[in-house]
Nucleic acid binder design. Sequence first.
DNA 1: GAGTGGTCTAGACCACCAA
DNA 2: TGGTGGTCTAGACCACTCC
Lengths: 249, 249
Amino acid sequence: MHPVSPEREAREVPLFLQIREILAQRIGSGTIGIGGRLPSERELAAELGTARMTVREALRMLEGEGLIYRAERRGYFVSPARLRYDPTRHVNVMRLIPSQGHVAEGIYLGRQLTRATGSLALMFGCQEGAPLILERSVAVMNGRRIEYGEHFLLEEAIPGYLDFPYESPLTQTLERRHGIRTKMIGFRTRPTNLFGIPTEALEVRAGSPGLYITRIKQHGGRVIEVDREYWLSDALEIVVGQFPNPHEA
Amino acid sequence: MHPVSPEREAREVPLFLQIREILAQRIGSGTIGIGGRLPSERELAAELGTARMTVREALRMLEGEGLIYRAERRGYFVSPARLRYDPTRHVNVMRLIPSQGHVAEGIYLGRQLTRATGSLALMFGCQEGAPLILERSVAVMNGRRIEYGEHFLLEEAIPGYLDFPYESPLTQTLERRHGIRTKMIGFRTRPTNLFGIPTEALEVRAGSPGLYITRIKQHGGRVIEVDREYWLSDALEIVVGQFPNPHEA
DNA sequence: GAGTGGTCTAGACCACCAA
DNA sequence: TGGTGGTCTAGACCACTCC
């Protein structure tokens, strides 16, 4: 190990960070409450005597921190407390949201037939090209779309699945209808910027900060379901194991 | 559940996304290899016949996806494969890096005495104001600073700790020197934009995308260590449980 | 139709890095 | 010392939302 590294010179704080600070304080102090709308970019620029792009940089900062979110072309709003989400547990998103005091709504985007390729085949541990069923959906919390999900099912492992329409939640449906009780065996997650299909489904700007989660579910010794979830970054935090909840204390 | 939502109109793809695509292809095809440097913002702008800010937007996109990273005022570089990190296991970062074929280096930033307040007191389950020891460090992978860590220790639970200098790795030191074998009981993580102390320690621009991780460690039925880690977003992915490794397949 | 964010331009000056 | 990214300005036009 090295000894202490040299301290950096103190520099003047950039303007956009000063603006970030001003806005963060207005939010923290409750001047703008949860769900409240911030002034428009142009209003803030005029008020603070700066250019619009500088204000945007500050807003982008707060968005990346999860303090605020954008509603496309409608404005910036203060984010509610993050959903606490444990991907190792088998809780359905549509049940998680109301369990933490929010209003949940689901949007079903339809079913597709596809085939296992690349990393999907690897995760299923099946042949390349094996038939898969894909169910797509969006989770809505308090009227805001926060998660786009793709659920891949190994067709040959769930005979008769295609004879029925989609029913939420998927896990319960598999158990009740097909006698299959899946078990979560692992997940993987990384931050990313969203674009393409997820941003279209979530109705947000391409480039919005997000969290990508992959989950693997097993039954009878083999993988029968792989989920890919794209969350808006400010909407959740991942909590695994024993962790005190600051909102209960 | 709602029926299928109406498809959005196809829109013209914004210029910065087209540029993102061009650069992503150059990276994916190996035209610019791992660790390779991208042309400068001005060069790209000239080559593509656009303004510098538009190029920056594309580069910011790729940075948020983790495909590239910035070295402050030195340029943009192609990111290596993400470190696979399981926070539920008790692997020290300085051992994790070499175990995945990279060169690790540690920078020790020193020790401070502090007190448990707010969420720290909550996580320790101790009185507000209880004395804590704070050890600060930075992890370097292949010459790049990728993680800034704060390790809080409950002073009264580790008698004599202050009589010795810091020794890495902390977990092994606690066991060998004090007979304390800690146990990871939970972690929490969320994406965020870094600024302040973490960005200074990591020598990156304020606003760089990052991942914040808190870990709690127990011994003898009580929490004795809380870690706060700030990772550069592109440097890792979190993998918990059984998950096939695409690099081994 | 007024207002919003989304995109884009064409500059500027600065601090910092490498040579 | 020349080139880099970091910051900032002052506009522009557009698609879209809400009224």
